[in-house]
């Protein structure tokens, strides 16, 4: 929401307040973390300061980077596949009423099922290694993107579609000129969800039957009872996921909700 000023400029007051609120929230979370560290004991739960210091050391150690790269590669490929397959499925099902009715409940059912149970099947199909992780990340991310795109395309205002037909647009022009712009706000929400779920899927895949990646490092650290590594990795992952999601939310608001 924006507030028009006397001189005609637009002041984004709520957005600004959002920043101080976020800052306050971060301080609050750090305080809770510090409090828990005092209660539980630093040997079991290191304090924010110790963790951040250790994270700095971890980031400069050469053995850490191959794992990070492995995870980044798996996540990147999985995200790309999720977006491409998700958008394609969403548009196909959204533009064809019957196909949508046919397959939407299947997608919804798969969405709410514990997909980790399917991971052994993927491992048997793709073998141990990066392919299974990519596939697992993709099946997590693809469904929300497809579902949101489907709903958005289906709910496009009929007058827009009629206008397109009157003007004799081809299917491709229809998608690029009408459906995509009209559906973009909702698709963006789907992409944000897909981003997070792909990350979750990729990491989950690494936590089981994997020899590389951040997920593997986490599981390895349990065996070694290395709480510092666990905390540093969890901190990094939460930081990355939180910032990415926050940034996407911000973009979403900036582009589509300032009317």
């Amino acid at each position: 929401m924006s507030v028009p000023m006397k001189d005609g400029s637009i002041k984004r007051r709520p957005l600004k307040r959002g920043w101080t609120d976020t800052l306050l929230l971060v301080v609050l979370l750090l305080a809770v973390w510090q409090g828990l560290a005092w209660v539980i004991g630093a040997a079991e739960l290191p304090s924010p300061f110790t963790t951040i210091a250790f994270t700095g050391r971890l980031l400069t150690s050469p053995s850490f980077w191959p794992h990070l790269l492995e995870t980044a590669k798996a996540f990147g490929v999985a995200l790309l596949l999720s977006v491409v397959i998700g958008l394609a499925t969403g548009f196909l099902l959204g533009m064809n009423r019957f196909a949508g009715d046919l397959l939407e409940p299947v997608l919804v059912a798969v969405y709410s099922v514990p997909k980790i149970t399917l991971y052994p099947i993927l491992l048997l199909l793709f073998g141990l290694g990066i392919a299974a992780k990519v596939a697992f990340g993709t099946i997590h991310g693809v469904i929300p993107i497809a579902l949101f795109t489907l709903a958005a395309v289906r709910n496009t205002r009929p007058v827009l579609l009629k206008t397109g037909r009157v003007m004799g647009l081809s299917t491709r022009e229809m998608i690029s000129g009408i459906l995509l712009p009209a559906a973009m706000p909702e698709i963006f929400t789907g992409l944000r969800l897909g981003f997070s779920l792909t990350l979750i899927g990729t990491l989950l895949g690494e936590m089981f039957a994997s020899q590389r990646g951040l997920g593997f490092m986490l599981m390895n650290a349990i065996g070694l009872h290395n709480v510092d590594v666990i905390m540093a990795l969890t901190f990094l992952l939460v930081l990355f996921a939180g910032c990415a999601s926050g940034f996407l939310l911000y973009l979403n608001r900036r582009f589509y909700q300032h009317v």
């Binding site: 959002g18 609120d21 929230l25 079991e44 666990i230 939460v238 996921a241």
Partner: peptide, 22 residues
């Protein structure tokens, strides 16, 4: 509010090793 908005973006299973230790 921002916490709730980003909550499900965080891979919650990353906390599992920590919880096992605790």
């Amino acid at each position: 509010d921002p916490l709730f908005a980003t909550y499900y973006a965080v891979p919650m299973f990353a906390f599992y090793p920590l919880l096992v230790v605790l």
